[in-house]
Simulated scan of single mutants.
Amino acid sequence: MGLLVFTYKTVIDAPIEAVWTFFSTAENLAKITSFPRVTILSNPETLEGNTIQMKLHFAGLYVNWTSKITYVHAPNCFIDQGVKLPFPITEWSHTHSFIENGSRTIMEDIVMFNAHVTSFVMRPILIAMFQGRELAIKQEFK
């Protein structure tokens, strides 16, 4: 299909240090992701070289996902690269960027991926997932 790119921005009412601390563990990824539900099965730390194993829950079905943290530049950015991905995804690289904006933080997610289905199918799934995360993040930093 070719590499596809999806971006999503979230403005968080918290300083960059607090946002970085929150995203320094994949346990909080599980906390803010309701679709699909996520269970972390390994060391959750956002450390360069760390491999994070997850189980994704889809209405009674379970699939495994393994990502490796390939780059960390605290408190501004980290990248996770898909190692073992569920169908239909064949490639996944997710850059998490954090930009200080006064007492707020702008978080930008850039996902580069390849899949066995078109962006017409994947885009609504990613939008739903990131919108759900945005709502949970805003609740977390009230």
Score class of each variant (00 low, 15 high):
residue 86 P to G: 00
residue 81 Q to T: 15
residue 105 T to R: 08
residue 81 Q to F: 15
residue 93 S to W: 08
residue 65 W to N: 00
residue 94 H to V: 04
residue 101 N to I: 11
residue 75 P to V: 02
residue 105 T to G: 02
residue 101 N to F: 09
residue 65 W to L: 02
residue 71 Y to M: 09
residue 67 S to G: 04
residue 68 K to P: 15
residue 73 H to G: 13
residue 97 S to D: 13
residue 101 N to A: 06
residue 88 P to V: 00
residue 76 N to D: 11
residue 106 I to G: 03
residue 88 P to A: 01
residue 99 I to Y: 12
residue 105 T to P: 04
residue 73 H to F: 11
residue 73 H to E: 15
residue 79 I to L: 02
residue 65 W to S: 00
residue 95 T to W: 14
residue 104 R to W: 06
residue 73 H to R: 04
residue 106 I to A: 04
residue 88 P to W: 05
residue 95 T to F: 10
residue 63 V to Y: 08
residue 91 E to Q: 05
residue 92 W to R: 01
residue 70 T to A: 01
residue 87 F to W: 15
residue 101 N to L: 10
residue 73 H to L: 09
residue 75 P to N: 05
residue 64 N to A: 02
residue 66 T to N: 04
residue 62 Y to I: 05
residue 89 I to M: 13
residue 108 E to Q: 04
residue 63 V to A: 09
residue 65 W to Y: 11
residue 86 P to F: 00
residue 92 W to L: 04
residue 93 S to M: 03
residue 97 S to H: 14
residue 74 A to V: 07
residue 78 F to C: 11
residue 73 H to S: 14
residue 93 S to Y: 08
residue 104 R to P: 03
residue 93 S to D: 12
residue 86 P to M: 00
residue 88 P to D: 03
residue 106 I to Y: 07
residue 83 V to Y: 13
residue 63 V to R: 10
residue 87 F to N: 04
residue 67 S to Q: 07
